[in-house]
Amino acid sequence: MVTDEENVFKALADKSRRQLLDQLREKNGLSLGELCEGHDMSRQAVTKHLVLLEAANLVVAVKRGREKLHYLNPVPINDIYMRWIGKFEQDRVQTLHNLKEALKENDHE
């Protein structure tokens, strides 16, 4: 079933599928053809990954003319986030995340 949390974790457990999500984070609303550009996965492999991502509701496909456009849908990830991170932890977790990001940037300099 579409709401199944198992599907979300399963979909996220694969590097290629995470790469497809990264691609949509970079540029939302891509067609299958556009999603196939930029890496060496076959069209069939990308299609297969998209089926799983759509089943997990992490990608939403919208028909536009003859094309299907794919959108990153972070809502299921947010549902999981909210399950374990409460109102009062949120700011502290965010602070740690910001610290980590800032340190990463310093490393690159």
């Binding site: 579409v2 939302n28 509701n57 456009l69 959108y71 849908n73 972070p74 809502v75 549902d79």
Partner: peptide, 9 residues
Amino acid sequence: KPEFVYTTY
């Protein structure tokens, strides 16, 4: 074309 499509069940 829409910039964002968010879906929940």
